[in-house]
Design a protein around this nucleic acid. Structure first.
Lengths: 358, 358
DNA sequence: TTGTAAGCGTTATCAG
DNA sequence: CTGATAACGCTTACAA
């Protein structure tokens, strides 16, 4: 069943050892022998058995990738870069999704352990540092992607969420806005905390008091929820802000639609700024002001660090790396200078202005 | 290095064989022995070495997934379902992207061969049926996802692209449109051919002659290209259709923006219909009429078929499965009845009306 | 430069 | 019910 190195050794008229050496282009093999081995391998359409190779001590040439949800565009892009970079270095990627469920996270780690992966890229940390500690104990290198932990000093690459949020909010302040709301999620993800901090810092620096009623926590798993939430908030005229900084672009499109359906205009009545610069952001109506933070860069750099760490000669020691990427504000048409009061709110806010289609 | 089954056998005071049996809950083991083995495994934090297991004849519990580009939302959703379904059956997924490059496709197949995966899910077929033939020869089960090959009878699950396109186009015909353009890509992907066929069939059935100048082939790798393409076409007033059926939602948002930037309105001047029903489609302005074809269903069903095939007892034989899912038209506000001529084209078409932001 | 032989960790066979 | 022992396919000392 399947052609083995023994078969090609026989066909090439050499020993298994020589065959192995020739195949792995290592050690001294005569040109003649190498030639015969390689052509035998070609003839027999040989493919190494990586399980055997891994078992015999070599690496498995496989990395694990643990994400919250690889179908979310931002993560999908990051995952794509991870796979590409790994492929370029001849590693393959096993993908796991946690959906922020600690149980699934544990299962993922267990599975990767059983598969004896050479390293793990981690974009989802649900049960604290326990799994990371285990990886460290077992000597499996890992890199945090888009995550940072206060209580565990690990290699990581992420973009400066606080800075991005800060710049987005400063942008709105400079446009004259003072009632700036922030829409975020309900979980305690690192990026949420950081963006909230950046938002607060910008307001404080501009002498704007933090108004808790303008910090909107809304479950953003389904966009419908976000849409409904915004409509409900806007229905109460007193709560309507003049600008809205949304946790990400995905939620921003739901917010923009909700704003429009409530009879308000973006940016004339409410300026909107997103985060992520997803592909569709430029095609929104109006084109969405947002923050880019090259998801693919995070994926690429993280994977390169991981591979470098894996291939580090045993005697050298490793200096923990923190790579922080600078996000960048992309100013487009969804944000504009605060209009004088007389030009705002052209129509009465009517909850039934329009509804979300099925 | 690492705790082995030998260690837990020793600690439990049984033979390796018994330990293995207890761990795999197969064969007869006394409750007492099982108990001791299991607790030893727990104490020592044991994790099977799947390489060893695979080498010893058991399966590797790994599937391969070959896609064109897992970061494209539609594929990302499908991939997500594949990973979830596989996980539920205790399989893990190795992801490969081909970018429609036959060389990368070959590399992917080679890699999966070396990893001795139990089966492969294939959503990218670039070099014809050669790789599939190889899989068949080697006895590696596979299922085509969202693909169908005329010249190779393989298990596959896809949605009826022709039907979806047909219904989309019929919808436009019934709204009174007769100048209906179709925007598609430049490659010869199966889904492109099928959607084009559905489009043609609908027109023919409504007595509308096929006008080649209304079938727009445009490279859709970058959305900018699509945007520029549409603007250029619309600049020539004579070529402006009253309705546009776009290959997918992703391109449709670029088309809608281009139409708007050329001073035309959707749907009053041009009705637009997309395909895929991506999450953002409902939040477009106007909400996009499109065709759903549950990407996740394709992923789930395909994976289930593959696993069933893998686990098929050797003596039973397998009847090739073709699962065809029915797509469904979602009518929203981007398509509307053909307006009388007098109400169309309110503004002169000016190529410099607006531009795409950076 | 080449070959022999001993693992790697597991499962499967077969005999107790 | 249990346990030796022989694979599985490969790498790698070590020996020649």
């Amino acid at each position: 069943m399947g052609v083995t190195i023994r078969d090609i050794a026989r066909q090439a008229g050499v020993s298994v050892t020589t065959a192995s050496r020739a195949l792995n282009k290592k050690g001294d093999v005569s040109d003649d022998a190498r030639e015969r081995v390689l052509s035998a391998a070609r003839d027999l359409n040989y493919a190494v058995n990586l399980h055997a190779r891994a078992l015999a001590g070599a690496s498995s040439r496989t990395l694990g990738l643990i994400f919250v949800d690889t179908s979310v565009p931002f993560f999908a892009e990051m995952a794509r870069a991870v796979v590409d970079t790994a492929t370029a270095h001849n590693y393959s990627i096993i993908v796991c999704n946690t959906d922020e469920d600690p149980r699934r996270e544990t299962q993922a780690h267990q599975m990767l352990r059983e598969k004896r992966v050479d390293g793990v890229l981690i974009g989802s940390v649900q049960s604290g540092s326990a799994p990371l500690r285990q990886l460290t104990n077992e000597g499996t290198p890992f890199v945090l992607l888009n995550r940072y932990l206060d209580d565990f000093d690990a290699d990581c690459v992420y973009s400066d969420n606080r800075l991005g949020a800060y710049e987005a909010t400063v942008h709105l302040c400079r446009l004259g806005h003072r009632r700036i709301a922030h829409l975020t999620g309900v979980d305690e993800r690192y990026s949420r905390r950081e963006r909230l901090l950046g938002y607060r810092q910008a307001l404080e620096e501009h002498g704007i008091a933090i108004d808790q009623r303008l910090i909107w926590h809304c479950d953003d798993f389904a966009l419908d929820t976000v849409y409904g939430f915004i409509r409900r908030v806007l229905a109460n005229r007193a709560d309507v802000p003049t600008a809205l900084f949304v946790y990400n672009d995905r939620c921003a499109i739901a917010a923009i639609k909700a704003i429009g359906d409530m009879g308000l205009r973006v940016p004339q009545d409410i300026s909107v700024v997103g985060y992520d610069d997803l592909e569709f952001a430029r095609y929104e109506a109006p084109p969405l002001t947002t923050v880019t933070h090259a998801a693919s860069e995070i994926g690429r750099i993280g994977t390169e660090i991981l591979i470098r760490k894996i291939q580090l000669p045993a005697h050298e020691n490793w200096a923990v790396q923190h790579v922080v990427l600078k996000p960048e504000l992309r100013i487009r048409e969804s944000s504009a200078a605060l209009a004088p009061l007389s030009r705002r709110y052209p129509t009465a806010v009517s909850p039934a202005y329009s509804t979300l289609p099925k």
